[in-house]
Design a protein around this nucleic acid. Structure first.
Lengths: 344, 344
DNA sequence: TTGAAAGCGCTAACAT
DNA sequence: ATGTTAGCGCTTTCAA
């Protein structure tokens, strides 16, 4: 009895579907892409054959032939910092319904790695690039400028974008928080942050913050920077040691909510009166922390909106032509006073 | 005065580098890939020309010609659950130094989306697939089986893998926790979890947990499931309402550490004696929570190790041939008693 | 050590 | 509505 031949180890091609359906490769291609006019009868035969065989189109070949790659390169520093998955969610949401798909590359906050990841991604000839920050190596800037595709730099607007840009001003965010703190009457302010020379956004917030305090005649009374380890635990430790060193502080500004939460938990345990005796604020507005005993004052960095806007810029470039959108969008971080910063 | 010609809008090709360096395309290709013998002099001229022009190779064309795509498709349910970025970190680490690169697809815990993401990724002809879970649609299973590339299903080993598999047994994890709780003398146990019919791993833990309790003659005294919202806040709310409903509970088992942390914070505020009056445990061992006032009992799901092992399986397949590795690896979740489960 | 020819699997453009 | 032809930019293979 004749056996059915074993399934081929070689991936199927359009030709296989063409032969199985008795229709030319070109028409099969049309059906599979819903392009051009194909009679309902032919369409059905082709679809049936493709499904029966389990045909998966080869996008490598398709992209080469059409010189269109429906990928958007998204380059971010990390996935462990909740901020970036949220930006990504915004990007995915905005790309939903278009042909475009995000592809993520991670730099670990390393400029050299950013460069190599960028090179790698550009070699796939994506339709656009969304990249975190405005600071890149010269080579990276050259690549982006030469790529001939829309480039959106996100998260930060304090600098010179290569092409388009959407984000918040971190200098302004630092300034806004400083103003709140001053208005609320705090005077002995400590700063706790990350030891990340590469985190330009944190640096800019710090600068905006200290300058605004300085204008009001206030100097940072103490500061400390950590690296590595669990942020919650670090916030705890740093808060403890800072208050031992400088007991008369009446406000602590944390460069992210996670270490702020650690500080909050520590101070509550120690019986500090918050925000009377000491006020607290973080940065980012991570929903993750909503269930803390007190709601930490913070500032929302508009992460989802940034992702959505950036993605719409790229999609718009192809749908409505270049220049169909504002190419420099500054969003306004929203202040949330929570329970740890006295209302003015 | 003659102007230098404007930079071409068209991306550069090998041909451009060939012309600029006066060397054949083939030799340029050899230099750029470090393949075959090229004289040092030629090599240098080519590299110089490529760098000067800012040439970025076209991997689309390269992959089509060589029919090798150095991409590993990684398909996971979400990026917001810290677990998956950690698995990813393990994958990236293990792929470092190989030619292979991970590319991530997200399913949002939806089987249909998993299917479409898988189809999309397979159409790029990756060198391997790493996919979370053992439960897939029939079509997805067929695609994976037909793809002709190594497939590693991760996170879970309770089921039938298509090809290779690495993870923990969630049934066993549930059982282990139940045994600890029983040994510690707790008898009135409540369960708090996520309302995710698609989260098979949480379901299996729950099953292993309840069955083991049942064997010891203990029935779950109360249970509740949430969906959406901040996990910390939900843990808080659910704990409160459960204890109002069933005040005599002496243990709460949470399906993840985040809601467990919410519960812990709530109970500490209310002045419960933990773990004397009531014991607590979560699941996952998220480092994120290391700074809590008490260390929550939990179980490490070996996330990084899972990622590393899966990636090594794919890399090994190409480096040392198929069958060069164990294709079914069960890791042992490590129990961490913390401060919320009495030691026996 | 270098080059020339052929073709990867598909689609744009042009027939019919 | 369907088919044919000619590449897309690279790498494989073979020849020099």
């Amino acid at each position: 009895m004749p056996l059915t031949p074993p399934p081929p180890r070689r991936p199927l091609t359009l030709r296989d579907v063409s032969e199985a359906s008795g229709v030319s490769e070109m028409t099969v291609s049309r059906v599979l892409r819903n392009k051009g006019d194909v009679s309902a009868a032919t369409r059905q035969r082709v679809q049936e054959a493709a499904k029966r065989l389990g045909y998966v189109p080869n996008k490598i070949a398709g992209s080469l032939a059409s010189s269109r790659v429906n990928l958007v390169a998204v380059i971010i520093p990390s996935l462990k910092n909740m901020v970036f998955p949220e930006v990504l969610a915004g990007i995915s949401a905005a790309l939903e319904g278009t042909e475009l798909q995000p592809v993520v590359g991670v730099t670990d906050y390393l400029l050299e790695k950013e460069e190599s990841v960028l090179f790698e991604m550009l070699s796939w000839r994506p339709s656009g690039v969304i990249i975190a920050g405005l600071e890149h190596s010269e080579a990276a800037q050259a690549m982006l400028a030469q790529a001939g595709i829309p480039v959106v730099e996100i998260m930060d607007v304090d600098g010179e974008p290569i092409d388009a840009c959407v984000g918040i001003s971190h200098r302004r965010a630092g300034r806004m928080m400083a103003e709140q703190i001053i208005d609320a009457g705090y005077r002995r302010v400590g700063f706790l942050g990350t030891k990340m020379p590469r985190d330009h956004r944190a640096r800019k917030r710090f600068e905006g913050f200290t300058r605004t305090l300085a204008k009001a005649g206030i100097e940072i009374a103490d500061q400390d920077f950590y690296s590595g380890g669990s942020a919650l635990a670090k916030g705890r430790e740093m808060t403890q040691s800072m208050l031992e060193r400088t007991p008369d502080l009446d406000f602590l500004y944390y460069s992210n909510d996670m270490i702020g939460a650690g500080g909050l938990l520590y101070l509550m345990e120690k019986g500090y009166d918050i925000p009377g005796q000491i006020g607290l604020a973080g940065f980012n507005g991570v929903e993750l922390l909503d269930g803390l005993p007190r709601q930490l004052a913070t500032m929302d960095a508009c992460r989802k909106e940034i992702g959505e806007t950036a993605a719409r810029m790229i999609a718009g470039h192809y749908a409505d032509g270049p220049g169909s959108f504002e190419n420099l969008v500054e969003l306004s971080p929203k202040l949330a006073l929570g329970d740890t910063l006295i209302r003015t």
